[in-house]
Nucleic acid binder design. Structure first.
Lengths: 145, 145
DNA sequence: GCAGACCCTGAAGCTACTATAGGGTCAAGA
DNA sequence: TCTTGACCCTATAGTAGCTTCAGGGTCTGC
């Protein structure tokens, strides 16, 4: 099959397929005389694997590593474990950060009932006040993900 | 004060200050004869406001809009409300997506107890299997944030 | 007069794609 | 045979919000 069909079957854009090839996530395929890429079932399988990992929000570097590891079938799979564990922890950390964020935003949103003017808008007031207050440590050296 | 001191006081990098100036988030400051930027307290206040909004994960475009709106003090503050509300909803959507993700990753992590080889690693097995299964719709047209 | 800390500009790098420009290929229909 | 339309190719730029780097100037103290 050609690039377009492979892409369609995996539910991605054809450009993404070429991008993955450049990034060494897909094996370089054979070409027709006129330069069209020719893919087989193994490519589709691999592309699906990559997309599944991406749907789990794994960075491409991790996916690449998993692909390498899955080739070395005799090795202990500690590395696979660590990688997934580390990713799980990143996701959990992000959830915690967003939960805190959501609380702050909900509180902020509650400051204004939209029936008044910018000059005495509770939200802006709060934003400006919070930005100046000594007590507001939320924008000092916070980790950004 | 010069760029470095402003940056230090706001807890950011000096390059970030210059970046915000380019992006029209800070007023262009006066310069010394030799070209050094000179900032006053108003700049620090504004920079703190920007950083506070960023700590709430607001995109710079939203921050720019808030800065504009806070200048028009006679207007109704409906726009401020909408902006914060929309951002809050984005954050909530992201939390929901990450919660689902965390469950999938935790399940995946539980597949392998690390005492065996890659050849029969439960995680890799599961990843490959899930990527191929018809039932796995998780990587077909999922929304990406 | 020199070291070290600071300042400047412009450009590249990061992630994971997406989009655009400018061109070639192929199969079917008139 | 010509044309149309759908596909393919490459290379490059754009997205967000910075960070880092290269290559240079300035200022202060010894």
């Amino acid at each position: 099959m050609h690039t377009g069909e492979l892409a369609r079957r995996a539910g991605v854009d054809a450009q993404t397929v070429r991008y993955y090839e450049r990034e060494k996530l897909l094996d370089t395929p054979a070409r027709t005389a006129s330069g069209y890429r020719i893919y087989g079932p193994a490519h589709l399988e691999r592309l699906n694997f990559v997309r599944h990992c991406r749907s789990l929000d794994m960075p491409l570097a991790d996916v690449r590593r998993l692909l390498e590891l899955s080739g070395e079938r005799g090795l202990s799979c500690d590395d696979v474990n660590e990688l997934v564990q580390a990713h799980l922890e990143r996701v959990r950390a992000k959830i915690a950060a967003l939960d805190a964020l959501e609380k702050q935003l909900a509180a902020l949103r509650a400051q204004c009932d939209s029936r008044h003017r910018v000059a005495d808008c509770g939200i802006l007031e709060e934003l400006i006040h919070a930005a100046q207050g000594e007590a507001c440590a939320c924008h000092r050296g916070r980790d950004r993900t």
